Computed example of a mutant assay.
Amino acid sequence: MNDSSVINSTISPTTATFDKQTANQTDIPVTLTLNDNTLIGINNGTTALVAGTDYTVSGTTVTIQKAYLAAQPVGTTTLTFNFSTGASANLAVSVVDTSSTGSGSITVQQYNSPVTATSNSLSPRIKLKNTGTTAINLSDVKLHYYYTIDGEKDQNFWCDWSTVGSSNVTGAFVKLPAPLTGADHYLEIGFTSGAGSLAAGDSIELQIRMNKTDWTNYTQTGDYSFDPTDSTYTDWSHTTGYVAGALQWGTEPQ
């Protein structure tokens, strides 16, 4: 017989980001609201984390150790908190690695809209910033958004809006010679000479959209460049940036 008086436990936060770059590694603290329950363990899929090694508990704070997180692959690691009664709670950790981001002359920030598991269009929102000390000709910049096509069809590209004008933003679809983790295609975003230059310290925004010509769905879940958790611009190393053909931001899929 179900006990309707049981109140589920909750955790805060429910999403977090961990950078595998050594200088940026930090533990992730999680606050528990137990509601008269007790924490009985944490799982990553079917694998149980080891208390005292992978995580520590102090009162109502659980700390996921950086050594454990650094061992996780780039992508989303979902940790399930299990309690004595009531429903479990999930912490989705976006694991990134900015250790190979080139010379750092540009930064790519991103969020996605929509973030549904399936959608008939992919719509990354991108902010490109010049973090160097000299202006960059935007016609020298390329951005790669990696994804799986989920049924190969012809595709359409639109730039719905941009700081530099939609007509100055270009898009080309590229099929990878062999599938990689979370990607068998990428969209290469570029700029015409009419986009001008990006001064040191300045940024531009892009609202991108792509779809298959028959409007069948993509499955976004697991796509390399898809950000399922953020709703505002966030540094996003899974969308790569190049200046004059050289990787300047992000980590390409393997």
Rank of each mutant, 00 (worst) to 15 (best):
S4P: 10
S5K: 14
I7S: 10
I7P: 01
D19N: 11
K20P: 00
A23Q: 15
N24R: 12
Q25E: 05
Q25K: 01
I28N: 06
I28R: 10
V30Y: 05
L39P: 01
G45F: 00
T56S: 06
T56M: 00
V62K: 02
K66T: 06
Y68P: 00
T78H: 10
T80G: 08
T80P: 03
T80Y: 07
N82E: 13
S84H: 13
D97I: 02
S99P: 00
T101A: 10
G102H: 07
S103H: 10
I106E: 09
I106R: 11
Q109M: 08
Q109E: 11
Y111D: 13
V115N: 11
A117G: 09
A117T: 09
T133L: 14
T133K: 13
T134Q: 15
L138N: 04
S139V: 06
H144Q: 15
Y147M: 05
T148G: 05
D150R: 15
F157Y: 03
D160R: 14
D160K: 14
S162L: 08
T163P: 02
S167Y: 02
T170D: 03
G171M: 04
A172F: 07
A172E: 11
K175R: 05
A178N: 04
A178G: 02
G182R: 08
D184N: 15
G196R: 07
S197K: 12
L198K: 11
D202A: 12
I204Q: 08
L206K: 06
T213M: 09
Y224L: 06
S225T: 04
S231D: 13
V243F: 00
A244Q: 09
Q248R: 07
G250S: 14
P253D: 13
P253T: 14
